[in-house]
Design a protein around this nucleic acid. Structure first.
Length: 271
DNA sequence: ATGATCTCCTGAGCGC
DNA sequence: TGCGCTCAGGAGATCA
């Protein structure tokens, strides 16, 4: 389940090998549809050259020399894998790119929650326009964050997951950020104590940075572009730790459902 | 307009 | 061993 740190780790891996590189072939290698249709067919990337790869929240933007942009969202189970030319393809491989350096890049996504959409220069992607500021954007101030909190009646957990408010947090990091800030996931965003606003923002950013420094959280399907899992899992305080002791107060971690998602928190020290 | 719920999809994990 | 059931969740669509 790639979230911001995983996607940034993947971006770095892609950027290191793809920047400036030409695409010799581009083949949509499965007939099944992804989450969203692409305005331009991916096959049209043959002959294109990568200028660089940007990230906003969990979305990757590949910029090409000719002004086109490829938007890539990994959804739940999407991954990019470098392979040798002609290498066997994993099941659910949807896109195969032949690279100038002789290798291949495969996009694999079993659950197909991800998408790839290629945009012409005069039809730039809209996908990130409704996203809020990236959670790690240095321009995002505690004052901005406080204003967003004040304007929402959603529970804090739902608020943090809402990409239109602040973008980049998923279920794992929302739970962990609330634990670090000692705030209950059930508290309404607009009822966040003023004294906690800056703490919640810095907690969210800290948990993302800590994870990023370790190459992302390793769960189920996540591997970086080299096929290597991250190792943040051991540092999680509450996520998927139901009935285990809270690292801070030793009360047992609870699990509840919010908006159809599991929330893990300590009912004793998160208020 | 806002928040809550439903939906898509496959594989892992579980109980019998 | 193997079948069938439940669950996981990002985010767009839909509902209240």
């Amino acid at each position: 389940m790639p979230e911001l740190p995983e996607v940034e780790t993947i971006r770095q891996g892609l950027q290191a090998r793809l920047k400036g590189q030409g695409i010799l072939s581009s083949e949509r290698s499965s007939a099944v549809a992804l989450r969203k249709p692409s305005p331009l067919p991916l096959d049209a990337l043959t002959g294109a050259r990568v200028v660089g790869i940007r990230r906003h929240a969990k979305v990757l933007f590949w910029d090409f020399e000719d002004g086109r942009t490829l938007v890539a969202h990994l959804g739940m189970t999407g991954k990019f894998l470098f392979a040798k030319a002609g290498a066997s393809r994993e099941p659910h491989t949807h896109w195969v790119v032949g690279l100038e350096d002789g290798g291949e890049l495969h996009f694999v996504d079993p659950r197909r929650f991800g998408w790839l959409s290629l945009h012409a220069p005069d039809n730039p992607p809209q996908d990130a326009r409704h996203y809020g500021p990236d959670a790690l954007d240095p321009a995002l101030t505690a004052a901005d964050f406080g204003a967003l909190l004040a304007s929402s009646k959603a529970p804090l957990k739902a608020f943090l997951l809402d990409q239109t408010k602040v973008a980049g947090l998923g279920n794992i990091y929302a739970c962990e950020a609330l634990w670090r800030a000692e705030l209950s996931p059930r508290r309404l965003a607009c009822n966040t104590p003023k004294s906690k606003v800056a703490l919640l923002l810095s907690s969210a950013q800290a948990v993302l940075r800590d994870s990023l420094a370790q190459g992302g959280t390793s769960f189920n399907d996540y591997v970086n572009a080299l096929g290597k899992p991250g190792d943040f899992l051991l540092d999680l305080a509450v996520f998927q730790r139901e009935d285990l002791p809270c690292p801070r107060c030793s009360a047992l971690v609870r699990r509840i459902q919010q908006a159809g998602r599991s929330t893990f928190y300590c009912g004793t020290c998160q208020r």
